[in-house]
Design a protein around this nucleic acid. Structure first.
Length: 986
RNA sequence: GGGCCGGUGGCGGAAUGGUAUACGCGCAACACUUAAAAUGUUGUCCGCUUUAGCGGAUGAGGGUUCGACUCCCUCCCGGCCCACCA
């Protein structure tokens, strides 16, 4: 018999498909479009990672299924090729980065082609191609013209050893990623993009897209919108420079408890009032030290608070007019809020730590609503008593159980081998405020003592502890009698009292001190707040803000995007600095930003990256471009005078922020992409009727109808906050200037899990655990590798590579191969008594559904089940086998194409339509009904599908097993679930 | 400290609240073979009994339910991301 020769088959069909342009996406076709996108790879020197194959195969399966469903599918590929590893390699080996990139992309292209992905290779793009980055530069200039790009002094990470500026992502826990040396912060002028101007839209428009919920949550957290108030604190009237200090707080309700103010070390107030500060030297030293502090030192210090009081100046709390001290401390960040906080040590953990260290007063102004008595509801749901068993030293956990007649019972704690039943009763003795707990133990051993509580209770009560105190209990021998009653009293104690008790009564602790906090950070009722006493904290927020003349305000964690890199291998920033143009003609021009910076005219784009001899950054931290005088010196495009080019380049996020648009029209040299083509691929609806009718509500329907963008974009979670957010920002900008038709780039976003090396570590060259896909393709074939990567585990979770397990999918394909030799052409005979119809249609349904929900692992196992079933038949009909091949085709495109042709079919299996299942075929003639008696499975029997409820119940009750278990007793209750089970309770 | 996701056989993992352990790997026995590999068949959660059955098990303990891997509460453990964000 002929062998399954994967090598021959795979290379043969890859050539055919390439020759026929099988995956060519047609612009402006009459067919509905579907745009599938994967994150284009960074062509690293290590070659293709098996992780790339996992996500590319997944999207390839979806793309192929869509084609089979009648869509004109765009599934493009390109290279995100600017970036550090290539540059570092160039520095080390003195090879031009273009050459390195060329070599690496060639490898990647060959590897991707060997896996049979259905990319439209005619649309291949490369971010380092001047024809591409011309438009990256163009978009930047548009932003510059609209005032979204501006220059600002910012702290950058500086590697002391390499004498080089590093991006945040190049700093790993305070150390330089390249050399492992210590880094520090340095101030440098940088180009910034004002992404914060889009913060609200980026936040709110998440409601209009179909992203996985965890992706939305992560983006929202990253944007970090929080509502609070800006409140001004006046200074002592005697202050020389009495400009008030503005603070931002989310808790204006705690204003009466603000006992001091803390400023970031960089705050302007300090320089403005330096002459009045009496401990000037100390303060200046602290500021210097804070600046000098390297990341690693700060991390090592943990959360130990440091700071210095500004002596000689005091602020006034606007609520109670009290004089309060002003501190500087590096736990306050200059870039968040106003760079100044009001400290409320009674209700904020960090303020509390600081206050304790500097002996500052703590004034509580919020009381937990619950007061000292906990409402019953809270007890019911959340108190846990941990009772120490004196005999075994094991701890039993008792939960408050169901409520019976106004008292609470503790649900049954169990002890081994005993008919243990522990019940406790509690009642609140109103007059004492004590809780009485009664534990009734029927067990021989006792559970005595102690204590209490869950996190929930602790959070709401903070200041108090709970303590079970043994009362009225006669000390007996260790053998307790059944029904013995131990009476406990639960009283409210402070933390110190609890600790004291534990020590002198020598009780072992089962008590989690973590639950006892001295400060309360929750909501509650105001106290010590004059006319606001007794008010709810939520209500007080706005009232108090108004009272002191403050303003409710929204703040974001999101920062503007630092867009400059002092590097060679990136897009040159197309700006020129002209000293002449920087001089303001009139006095009010001084207010303009970016004075002196002139855009390179559009017709001169792209600004080409010049050839240099060395790619190493300069000692001053400038890009190596700064050394090329001939390139730097230019005429000012505006006044024609002598000017200088910007020598910083763009970060590698730039090219990837709009690449999906370029795929729509990759060779256009007039615009970034033709409007009509953009409209077709990005804006036209690809909504199917089924999608609409399955939309849950009208809002969702509306969303499906109006949403625009890439239909399905899959990528890694690690790109959620940077790439995904950046490209949404660029897209919204392009929408605003009319360059694109929709306001969101991606309709749907999903994510994949990483492929880890054996041992659940990341694959890395240094660990020597990298799997080279070429080897796997050589030994097992591309189809096997694709199938294995889909089968290995849930797609959205990280999975461990296992070379051992690849044999499973390989054996499966060999089974398929052998099966094809047993096809019977006599259709009539086969169809008459076809035993596999049920399984076949179940598989069509399951595989189709699983692909849509990216549950590829179970789709593959269902295909395996079908093959196992078919293997049991004497022969298989050609029609059924071909349906199976069509289901397998997206997963294993080569072997299915080969068998398809061997069966005498033309042209390609990949241009066939997707099989439909027949609902009626899914229904079996016979069901197995399970019989449960008192919740346990006791047997089963078969019934024909036509048997009704009453008959089935009757049959179940009459069965021998049931009769045996019932033993003459009558059933109390009989539950019937159609087609599944009968549950009998007696 | 905050957010997110997990915890099921020897291993990767299946299970709209309805026979837990599908599918695959591994392992064992048998068949084929001079032999091995490959392939095929059967078996494979644990314990007690070995036709058949009984009991136990999805990190731990409770709750809701006729019925819980699944829903609720508390606790424990692990992973990832962010992190002095007022």
């Amino acid at each position: 018999m002929r062998q399954y020769n994967h090598k021959g088959i795979e290379s043969k069909w890859q050539k055919v498909w390439e020759k026929e342009d099988a995956n060519y996406a047609e612009d402006n076709s009459d067919k509905p479009k579907y745009y599938c996108l994967i994150e284009f790879p960074y062509p690293s020197g290590d070659g293709l990672h098996v992780g790339h194959i996992r996500s590319n195969t997944a999207m390839d399966i979806i793309a192929r299924k869509r084609r089979a469903e009648g869509y004109n599918v765009l599934y493009p590929i390109g290279w995100d090729a600017f970036g550090l590893p290539t540059e570092n390699y160039a520095i080390k080996t003195k090879t031009p980065p273009e050459e390195v990139t060329k070599k690496n992309t060639d490898t990647f292209r060959r590897q991707l082609k060997s896996l049979g992905f259905s990319f439209d290779w005619s649309r291949e793009i490369n971010t380092t191609d001047p024809k591409y980055y011309k438009w990256t530069q163009w978009i930047f200039l548009e932003m510059f013209k609209k005032g979204l790009a501006y220059k600002k002094k910012t702290a950058i990470n500086w590697c002391i050893d390499c004498k080089i500026g590093l991006a945040n992502e190049e700093v790993v826990s305070g150390l330089c990623e390249r050399c492992g040396g210590v880094t520090e912060k340095r101030e440098k002028e940088q180009w910034m993009l004002a992404i914060t101007k889009y913060a609200d839209r980026l936040y709110d428009d998440l409601d209009t897209v179909d992203y996985l919920e965890k992706i939305k949550i992560q983006q929202r957290n990253w944007i970090g919108r929080s509502n609070g108030a800006e409140i001004e604190f006046n200074l002592q009237p005697t202050t020389y420079n009495p400009q008030p200090i503005k603070v931002f707080t989310t808790r204006p309700d705690t204003l009466f408890g603000a006992t001091y103010i803390v400023l970031a070390p960089e705050h302007d107030f300090i320089t403005n009032n330096l002459q009045q500060i009496t401990n000037k030297d100390e303060v200046e030293k602290y500021i210097r030290d804070a600046k000098k502090k390297t990341e690693i030192e700060r991390t090592a210090e943990g959360k130990e608070k440091t700071g210095v009081e500004l002596k000689g100046v005091k602020a006034i709390n606007p609520a109670n007019k009290e004089e309060i001290p002003i501190f500087i401390a590096d736990y306050v960040l200059k870039d968040y809020g106003t760079g100044a906080i009001m400290a409320v040590p009674a209700h904020d953990v960090r303020d509390y730590e600081f206050a304790k260290k500097f002996n500052l007063s703590v004034v509580p102004v919020i009381e937990p609503e619950t007061g000292k008595k906990l409402p019953e509801e809270q007890f019911r749901s959340s108190i846990v008593a941990i009772v120490e068993d004196t005999q075994t030293s094991k701890f039993l956990t008792l939960n408050w159980g169901q409520k019976l007649g106004g008292t609470l019972f503790v649900g049954g704690g169990r002890e081994e081998g005993e008919d243990a039943e522990v019940a406790a009763r509690r009642e609140i003795a109103e007059e004492t405020g004590y809780l009485n707990i009664e534990l009734v133990g029927k067990t021989g051993r006792t559970h005595h003592h102690y204590f209490a509580f869950s996190k929930n209770v602790a959070r709401n009560t903070e200041v108090i502890g709970l303590h079970f105190k043994l009362v009225d209990r006669e000390q007996k021998s260790t053998n307790h009698q059944a029904d013995e009653k131990d009476k406990f009293t639960l009283e409210w104690l402070t933390k110190e009292e609890v600790l004291g008790k534990m020590e002198d009564e020598n009780h072992l602790l089962a008590f989690s001190l973590l639950n006892l906090k001295e400060i309360y950070t929750g909501k509650g009722i105001l106290t010590n707040s004059d006319q606001f006493d007794g008010m709810d904290s939520e209500e007080a927020k706005e009232k108090i803000t108004k009272f002191v003349g403050g303003e409710m305000k929204t703040t974001y964690k999101l920062r503007d995007w630092v867009f400059s890199r002092q590097r060679y291998w990136g897009e040159p920033i197309p700006l020129v600095y002209c000293v002449h143009c920087a001089e303001p003609a009139t006095s009010n021009q001084k207010l303009e930003t970016n004075m002196g910076w002139v855009a390179v005219p559009e017709e001169e784009l792209p600004v080409l990256l010049p050839k240099v001899e060395a790619y190493t950054p300069t000692d001053t931290g400038e890009s190596p471009l700064a050394k090329i005088e001939s390139w730097v010196k230019v005429k000012c495009p505006k006044c024609g005078g002598p000017a200088k080019r910007e020598t910083d380049t763009m970060p590698n996020w730039a090219g990837s922020s709009w690449y999906y648009l370029r795929y729509c029209d990759p060779h256009n040299d007039k615009v970034l992409a033709d409007k009509a083509k953009l409209n077709y691929w990005m804006t036209a609806s690809s909504v199917r009727g089924s999608e609409l009718s399955s939309a849950k509500d009208s809002t969702t329907q509306q969303r499906v109808l109006t949403s625009t963008g890439v239909d399905w974009y899959n990528g890694g979670m690690e790109h959620t906050t940077l790439h995904l957010l950046y490209s949404r920002f660029w897209h919204k900008f392009l929408f605003d200037i009319g360059a694109v038709g929709g306001s969101e780039p991606y309709k749907k976003r999903t994510s994949h899990g990483m492929v880890l090396a054996e041992g659940k570590e990341k694959m890395s060259k240094s660990k020597g655990n990298v799997i080279n896909p070429d080897d796997i393709v050589e030994i097992y074939g591309a189809d096997t590798l694709r199938l294995y990567e889909m089968f290995m585990g849930p797609f959205d979770q990280a999975v461990e590579w296992s070379t051992k397990n690849i044999i499973g999918p390989r054996r499966f394909l060999e089974k398929v191969w052998k099966l094809s030799t047993r096809i019977n052409a006599d259709e009539t005979r086969i169809n008459a008594d076809n035993k596999i119809f049920g399984q076949l249609h179940k598989t069509i349904k399951k595989v189709g559904g699983d692909i849509e929900s990216m549950r590829f692992n179970t789709a593959v196992s269902e295909l395996m089940i079908l093959v196992n079933e078919m293997g049991k038949q004497e022969s298989i009909s050609k029609t059924n086998f071909e349906i199976f091949l069509k289901l397998l085709a997206p997963f294993a495109p080569h072997i299915t194409e080969e068998l398809w042709h061997e069966l005498g079919n033309e042209p390609s299996i990949h241009s066939e339509t997707w099989p439909k299942y027949d609902e009626s075929k899914l229904l079996a003639d016979e069901y197995t009904i399970v019989v449960q008696i008192n919740g346990k499975v006791r047997g089963n029997f078969k019934v024909s599908a036509s048997l009704g409820e009453e008959e089935t119940k009757k049959k179940a009750l009459e069965s021998e097993t049931t009769q045996k278990w019932l033993n003459g007793k009558g059933p109390k209750k009989v539950v019937y679930v159609a087609g599944k089970l009968v549950s009998i309770v007696f």
